[in-house]
């Protein structure tokens, strides 16, 4: 249900094999799983930067990126151009999170940051296609709330900033589609504790959660920071070139 993750549609989390694949239409364009990953990271950053310009809160960004990543578990880049889908996800998320941003404002900043041939009607058409692609499920739960509560419970609120940034970074991965928000929050606390030499092991033990899951997420976090936290411009432009060129 609406404000309870476990009763909601979102608890049907996705498995690795449901999100790692590249659609045949994209394969034909030479897009590899690695390219797809890079494109999604880049577009997540694009959403973040647009959001910064139109001044919406982090939760709107998080919802937009979650929409974006959900869409590409079902649709190909060929069919749904990520350069339009990304800003439209932000547009839709701004409505769902009660902070409506005007389409023409988005278009203005899209044109400001990069060459862009899209106009307002393109966003409006894509909004409707996204609603369908999302199967009209629009409520998204995020780790931020649990994070604050868990940090308080562990008595380490001084780690709010670092863990919060970790959570933000995890939106550049599909982990947010695969694990419940509180597990993401816990994994971020786990990683941050390791970085900052905080002994939280006793606290984790008391939680009686599956530490294997925490460790799996942790490995993914390390992989992200080692390989993807800064995208190589060459790899990025090579991947973007494989997207259908808009005339």
């Amino acid at each position: 249900m609406a404000a309870n993750f476990w009763g909601s549609s979102q608890w049907k989390l996705l498995e690795q094999d449901e999100i790692g694949h590249v659609f045949p239409a994209d394969q034909e364009n030479g897009i590899s799983p690695e390219d797809a990953k890079i494109i999604k990271i880049h577009m997540s950053e694009y959403i973040q930067s647009l959001a910064h310009q139109v001044k919406v809160r982090q939760r709107v960004v998080a919802t937009a990126i979650a929409y974006f990543r959900r869409v590409y578990t079902r649709k190909s880049f060929v069919e749904y151009d990520p350069r339009l889908v990304a800003p439209t996800c932000l547009y839709l998320a701004s409505k769902a999170e009660e902070s409506t941003v005007q389409a023409k404002l988005l278009i203005f900043y899209m044109k400001k940051t990069k060459k862009c041939s899209y106009e307002v009607p393109d966003i409006l058409h894509m909004e409707m296609r996204l609603l369908e692609a999302l199967d009209f499920y629009l409520i998204i739960y995020h780790p931020y709330r649990s994070l604050i509560q868990l940090l308080q419970d562990a008595g380490i609120t001084e780690m709010t900033k670092i863990t919060w940034s970790l959570v933000n970074d995890l939106y550049k991965t599909d982990l947010i589609l695969m694990y419940p928000p509180f597990m993401i929050a816990l994994a971020c606390i786990f990683v941050a504790s390791a970085f900052q030499d905080k002994d939280t092991l006793a606290w984790f033990e008391e939680l009686r959660i599956d530490m294997h899951v925490i460790k799996t997420i942790t490995m993914e976090i390390f992989d992200f920071y080692e390989n993807y936290s800064t995208l190589s411009p060459e790899k990025l432009s090579a991947a973007l070139k494989k997207l259908p060129q808009r005339t």
């Binding site: 909601s8 839709l92 409006l124 909004e127 629009l138």
Partner: peptide, 24 residues
Amino acid sequence: KQSKEGDGVSPTAIREIMLLRECD
């Protein structure tokens, strides 16, 4: 109806879909 001002799907419709899609 689509609003004429270029605002896309009305927030009213978004709210109704968003909430009722999860209600049972």
